[in-house]
Design a protein around this nucleic acid. Structure first.
Lengths: 213, 213
DNA sequence: TGCTACTTACTGACAGCATTGTAAGTTACT
DNA sequence: AGTAACTTACAATGCTGTCAGTAAGTAGCA
């Protein structure tokens, strides 16, 4: 049967074109949400029709998944080469990220909108965000474990709670900041809260809510 | 000129019918988001057509605004009669709310989804959430101020940051909990984080991130 | 080098569906 | 008699995805 040359490799410029599309999609999905962000608008940004985008990604669902992965990769590249900081360095890194985020509201908004939208019925981004939070909580918890060990402590439940809390404040502050940047200082407040949580995780003090009443 | 009986008062059952619609809308918007939640689905839940809903609320935009207000009111009624707790009682109240929320994922999801969606372009819920966060931050900050005063402290910047942080962790934890309730304990973790933030606001300790590096 | 066969990267047109909003009519309350 | 509370029908739009076609590239081969 025929000389099966089944599949050609993509042309050299194609990877760049795809990245253009992913960047445009991140912008549109960030500004309007996934459900409300039409392919046609993404297409227009890169000088194509929406059919062209479907040619590259097959469906809008798959486009979202790739957009989320793309955002991760470009983030990791941007900050530093793969290496995950551990112990106290991770927290310094998170705080630096909060400061960097103040300069890129578009990215912050995309992340905030898409993560919340991911909990809705049949959202194609859900698995990504489940995984992402699991991984991030693991990394933060590990950093806490390292710092606990340095101090001769070992309180796993407290460490897990602190890890989830650190990510939660950062996310929650982003929403408030997006709604009204004049009322919330994203970075300074993130730093304050991360510090508070870290201190309580590493050197707990008695609850002020138990006494008196 | 004609005996102008321009407008009749709504029939007695109408108020109840409207509340039914609002509850159904909260469910649908919570499950699917505002943009992705069709009027027809809301209508079906209350045994009507979508045109009937538009008869009551005029447009989908106005329905959302009323849904958000409705959610507020039923919350306030549910917990206790209007009175805003102050000082330490507010924090006890917030923690109780977190425990209550573990029993009503639907409400939590509606809130998480709609607040994030509100930052997108031309979303009719935006003003509501801006106001809501401003008011809530004000109430929490006031509670901190009371507690600071009891301790002879006065640090306005710290108080404002703590207030935003408290609301932020609660919201952020909700998203993580919705994504995977087996990995995040909503209430216990909220309590831990609120405590940590309150302690740092009321009796700051030096940053662990300043030393050593 | 040039020809042939095949593939990628699109476009334009359109099918098909979902959705919001409107208009006109019906029933039943007041 | 008039209006509230609907329904049915429909207009108008917007969206995703498919299909057929075209231009341009690439591989194999004489």
């Amino acid at each position: 049967m025929a000389t099966t040359r089944r599949q050609l490799p993509p042309r050299p410029e194609t990877a760049a074109r795809r990245r253009e599309i992913l960047a445009a999609a991140l912008e549109t999905f960030g500004a309007k949400g996934y459900n409300n962000g039409p392919l046609a608008e993404i297409a227009e940004q890169v000088g194509m029709t929406h059919a062209g985008i479907l040619h590259h990604f097959g469906s809008k669902d798959r486009l979202l998944v790739e957009v989320l992965r793309y955002r991760d990769e470009s983030d990791v590249e941007g900050i530093e080469g793969q290496h995950i900081p551990d112990g106290i360095e991770l927290f310094r890194h998170l705080i630096r990220t909060a400061f960097a985020n103040e300069q890129r509201p578009g990215i912050v908004q995309a992340y905030a909108v898409l993560s919340a939208e991911s909990v809705t019925d049949a959202n194609p981004g859900r698995e990504y965000f489940e995984d992402r939070y699991r991984v991030l909580r693991g990394e933060v918890a590990e950093a806490f474990r390292v710092m606990c060990a340095e101090r001769g402590l070992d309180e796993p439940a407290r460490v897990d709670r602190a890890a989830a809390s650190v990510l939660a404040v950062m996310d929650g502050l982003q929403v408030q900041w997006l709604l009204d940047p004049t009322q919330v200082e994203l970075a300074q407040t993130s730093a304050f809260a991360i510090e508070a949580i870290a201190l309580q995780a590493l050197d707990p003090r008695p609850s002020p809510f138990d006494g008196g009443a």
